[in-house]
Each structure stands twice: as structure tokens, then as C-alpha cells.
Amino acid sequence: MTVAITTPTGNVGRHVVRLVVQAGLRPRVLLRHPSALPSDVREYVDAVRVDQLDANSVVEATEGVDALYWVDPPTSLPDPLDGYRLATESLVAAVRTNGIRRVVFQSSGGAERRRGMGDIDGLALTETALDELGIDVTHLRCGYFFTNLLFDLDSILGGTLTTAMDVDRPLPWVAPEDIAAVATARLLSSDWHGRHVQAVHGPEDLSFREVAAVLGEVLDRSVTVRQVSDDDVRAELEGAGLTPQQVAAIVDMTAGIRDGFVPENPRDYTTTTPTPLAGWARTRLKAACDA
């Protein structure tokens, strides 16, 4: 079985690579810069240079592939949805040309709404395109990544967690390595067929106020949550030079999740994963604090 993995140096992809290698396979890893792979990984994988927005590049890189772990890559295009369209076209061309039988797609909670969710609308576009191919596909509807906290690390270490979300509304929070475990299990199993949606909700739903309390305990300092408005976020992003479409993709994603969204897949045994926020924070955030 030939397994291909996109974004193999990403927050989730690097764990997928390790798990697939530990399962006894030699995966094909697809990335723009193969030199970015850690040196201790290179001897266990076949690294292929690929531009996921170039259909010909993806088709060539996935020849002979049986199962594919796909993540739509971040882009710097003025309109993020144009990047999602190009990535989706590349994926569809590769599946059709190379007869790829199984795809595990890293999507997000909110994609089920199909529109009105900002950046997540691009993931919905990919989901829809995969569904139309009639292959075996699992969409991973992931919760809020723990690693998103790293974008606000300096502020957190200074005692403030900032968000435009409702600070008291619980959301599913998940460790990237837990997403990788579910992705790898789906990728390597041959016992499922057709279209599946697999939510990955983490161990528990947490509000931002509760997250701040957990971080404060782990870091042994006071961490308070500060709620800002969509207009505040919009002004900050515009000041950083983002295009109107890039700003809207971020602001509308937050608003879509915040304003009445309920995940299609409820929390149950199949959607709950084990890694707690406190354990992850001790490893990732406290190390940064102590450095």
C-alpha cells in the first residue's frame, strides 16, 4: 500500500508521518520544500517536491498512490478562497487521473454549513468536490486546535488571552497529535468504504474563560481573557496589510462559529480524543515560558 501525506511538517501532518512510519510503511511525503524535513525523518520517507495549487504537480506526485492524507495548504493569494479552489482542483485531478481509492481530508467543524463561515467555506468546497468523486473519503471535522494559542503566545505569557469569541461559550478544543491519530487510523484501515464524517472534538468542550484558567494554572501566573469586537480584529488585520478578502475570511470564520453554530456531529465516544489542554500546555507553553 502506497500512502501519501501532504503538509508533513505541519502541526498534524508531522505526527501522521511518524505514526505511518511506526506502522511499518514508507510514506510518500509531499511538500513544497523537501529540505524542510527534519534530518531524522528523511531516511524513512520518500520526499517529493510539490505545489498543491498546481494540478499537474499534484498529479505527478501522486502517481501510484493508494491512500492520501490531504490538507488544503495556506496561501498568500489576495482571496483565500481562490487558494482553496486551486487546491481542490489539484486534488480532484490527482484522484481521477491516478485512481486514488481512499482520501482522508482534514476539514473543520463548520464546513457542514457550506457557506457563511469565512475561511472554512474553502474546506466545504473541498468536501463537496470529494463527495462527487464517489471514492472512499473521510472528512475530519476538527475542533479548535490547541496550537492556535501559539499565535497569541506573547500576550498569554503577559497574562492576557484575547479573542473575538463569546468568552463563556464552550467549544471543542483538540490537540493536533490526536487529530493525527484519528487520521492515521482512517488512512491505514481498509474496512470502511463510502463517505464518512469523523468529528475530532478533543477531550472536552472549553470556553475561553476556562482555557485562560487552565493556562494560568499551568504557567503559574494570572491569565485573564479579553474579548474584542469583530471591528477591533478587522482594524488590526487591515493594519497588518491583509487584503479585504483575507480579513473577511478570518473575521467571518470567527463570527460563524461564535454566532449560534452547533456541530453536526455530537460529542460521543467516537469523537472524543484523550489529550487534555493542561498536559499539552505543560509541554508546549510552559517550555516557551521557561526558555
Rank of each mutant, 00 (worst) to 15 (best):
I5N: 00
T6L: 02
T7W: 00
V12K: 01
R14H: 04
V17K: 01
V17E: 01
V17W: 01
G24L: 06
R26A: 05
L31Q: 03
L31G: 03
H33W: 04
P34R: 02
P34C: 02
S35L: 08
L37T: 02
S39H: 14
D46G: 13
A47D: 10
L53Q: 06
D54Y: 08
S57V: 10
V58D: 02
V58L: 15
V59P: 10
A61K: 04
T62C: 15
E63C: 07
E63F: 04
D66Y: 07
A67R: 10
L68S: 02
L68K: 04
Y69L: 07
W70V: 03
P74N: 03
D79K: 02
L81S: 09
L86G: 01
T88E: 02
A93F: 04
V95W: 04
I100Y: 04
R102Y: 06
Q106F: 03
G116I: 08
G116R: 04
G116F: 05
M117G: 02
G118A: 12
E127G: 10
E127C: 08
E127D: 15
T128V: 13
D131S: 11
E132D: 14
L133T: 14
G134W: 12
D136Y: 06
D136I: 07
V137N: 03
V137F: 06
H139P: 07
L140W: 07
L149P: 00
F151N: 12
D152F: 02
D152Q: 09
L153V: 11
L153G: 11
L157D: 00
G158E: 07
T163R: 00
D168S: 07
R169V: 01
R169G: 00
L171P: 00
L171S: 00
A175C: 12
A175V: 00
P176L: 06
V182A: 10
A185V: 04
R186H: 15
L188I: 12
W192V: 15
G194Y: 12
H196P: 08
A199K: 08
D205I: 05
L206F: 09
L206W: 06
S207I: 08
F208R: 11
R209D: 07
A212G: 12
E217N: 14
E217P: 05
E217A: 13
L219F: 06
R221G: 02
V223L: 03
Q227W: 05
Q227F: 05
V228F: 11
A235N: 14
E236Y: 10
L237A: 08
L237M: 14
L237S: 08
A240R: 13
L242F: 14
T243M: 08
P244E: 12
A249K: 03
V251L: 07
T254F: 13
A255V: 11
R258N: 13
R258I: 11
G260F: 10
F261N: 12
V262G: 08
P266F: 10
P266G: 11
D268K: 09
Y269S: 15
Y269D: 15
P274V: 14
G279A: 15
K286V: 12
A287K: 15
A291W: 05
A291T: 10
